[in-house]
């Protein structure tokens, strides 16, 4: 009886997410929020350069990326991503503590698909990840 409803939340096949943040704690938080209930596969990268390498070895369904990171920041990463043919169309969720209009506008101008201001609750994280990856396929 209940399998029909289960389908609303459980992704099939498991969606793969790439979490890009220089803070190990943030990555661990995202991993914890995303890995267990919905069964996402979560990979981590700690800056833009590593993220690009990982993305190229993909495939990923969604990239969650911070703005401020050493070596290659989030905005540069997205611009590079969007101009690298194989991975140009990867959905990107950008997360940051920056909440000014111009920060958000800068992200939009690079084709960021959703900009969320930290802190983000685990529920929101899961919800938006599910929406952006179409995690519930009827």
């Amino acid at each position: 009886m209940s399998h029909g409803n289960d389908a609303h939340i459980r992704p099939r096949p498991p969606k793969r997410l790439l979490v890009v943040d220089d803070a190990a704690l943030v990555r661990a938080y995202y991993r914890q929020a995303l890995e267990q209930p919905g069964g996402y596969t979560v990979d981590e990268a700690f800056n833009g350069i590593e993220a690009l390498e990982k993305a190229l070895s993909g495939p990923y369904d969604l990239i969650l990326v911070d703005v401020n990171m050493p070596k290659m920041d989030g905005l540069t990463f997205v611009r590079t991503l969007r101009t690298t043919e194989e991975i140009a169309c990867l959905p990107v969720m950008m997360t940051s503590t920056l909440n000014r209009d111009k920060d958000i506008a800068a992200a939009r101008a690079l084709g960021v698909n959703l900009y969320l201001v930290k802190p983000i609750s685990a529920d929101d994280l899961r919800l938006f990840a599910a929406i952006m990856t179409g995690a519930t396929e009827p």
Binding site: R79, T83, A88, C89, G111
Partner: peptide, 13 residues
């Protein structure tokens, strides 16, 4: 330069 990528990503999302 990144319009195509953005369109593709937005369509997917």
């Amino acid at each position: 330069a990144w319009l195509a990528g953005s369109i593709g990503a937005a369509a997917k999302v």
